[in-house]
Structures are given as structure tokens and as C-alpha cells.
């Protein structure tokens, strides 16, 4: 089992390597990425993640153990980013390797849903710096975040 709270980018290829092993016929990898949602404050450019780290790591480990017990997961990874995560980058990777696909899908679903409600990790839209207003010759419009 691999659990991680990372300040840097999460690697999907590294996650897949963690899930390799003999007889592991079902591998499910879920990658959650930051969406450029439009909010009343404009288009989201990034999210900021924080955690109560000791408890978050303990919570991730407990989820991994539960996935083994309930679904027979033989490899589990639970990786989550901390700090600022720009749009389109992965904020979370959940991976499971089992003997067959049904358990792999079920375990991955279980892990990501439980992670969201039971592990002390929070996200927020970072505060934006006020920019001086500059008149545009064509008026307002365009993307609020690049």
C-alpha cells in the first residue's frame, strides 16, 4: 500500500508502476483533476489543498486496509496533493489492483468516496490578488484565468 501527501505533481505512470504485480488482472486508476469551474469570483485557476497531515495519512492508511479487507485489493495507492494545484493538474490519484475487474472498480469507488468524507483534507480557491483595472478597447470579456 502506498499513501502520500505530496507538494509536487502526481505521476500517473509512477502510480501505474505501484500497481504492477503477478496475477493482478484488474487495475483501476482514478485521477481527480482540478476543473476550471466558473464561480461568482470568476473562472477557477487553481485550488489550494491543506490537511491535518498526521491524521490524513492515518486516515488514508485505514482506507487502504479496508479496501484490502472488503474487496481483496492486493495493491492500493492513495496519493493526494497539498498546496496550490493549477487547473487540469491531478489533485488526487486512487489506484487499486485486484484479481478481477469487479472488485477493482468497487474498491476504487469506495476509496475515492470515503476519502472525500473521512480524511481531513480541505480545498479552497486561493485568494486572488487585486489587479488594477485597465480599460479594454473591446470592453469586458475573455477568460478570467489562463
Amino acid at each position: 500500500m502506498s499513501v502520500r501527501l505530496a507538494r509536487g505533481r502526481l505521476s500517473v505512470s509512477a502510480a501505474m508502476r505501484e500497481l504492477e504485480g503477478p496475477g493482478l488482472g484488474g487495475v483501476v486508476l482514478f485521477v481527480g483533476r482540478v476543473r476550471p469551474d466558473v464561480t461568482p469570483r470568476g473562472r477557477v485557476a487553481a485550488l489550494e489543498y491543506e490537511a491535518h497531515q498526521e491524521l490524513a495519512l492515518a486516515g488514508l492508511s485505514e482506507l487502504g486496509r479496508n479496501a484490502r479487507t472488503r474487496f481483496g485489493a492486493r495493491r492500493v495507492i492513495l496519493w493526494h496533493r497539498l498546496g496550490r494545484v493549477p487547473v487540469d493538474e491531478a489533485s488526487v490519484i486512487v489506484g487499486v489492483a485486484t484479481g478481477h475487474r469487479a472488485e477493482a472498480f468497487a474498491a476504487a469507488r469506495f476509496l475515492i468516496e470515503e476519502l472525500k468524507v473521512k480524511v481531513p483534507i480541505w480545498k479552497a480557491e486561493p485568494a486572488r490578488r487585486a489587479r488594477p483595472r485597465q480599460p479594454h478597447p473591446r470592453g469586458p470579456g475573455g477568460r478570467s484565468a489562463g
Binding site: 481527480g32 491535518h52 491524521l55 488526487v92 476519502l115 472525500k116 468524507v117 473521512k118 480541505w122 480545498k123
Partner: peptide, 9 residues
């Protein structure tokens, strides 16, 4: 510690 509702993912 005060833990508001979680929101990872």
C-alpha cells in the same frame, strides 16, 4: 483540533 467538513479530492 477543529476540523470543518472535509473536502479532499
Amino acid at each position: 483540533a477543529v476540523h470543518p467538513p472535509y473536502g479532499g479530492g
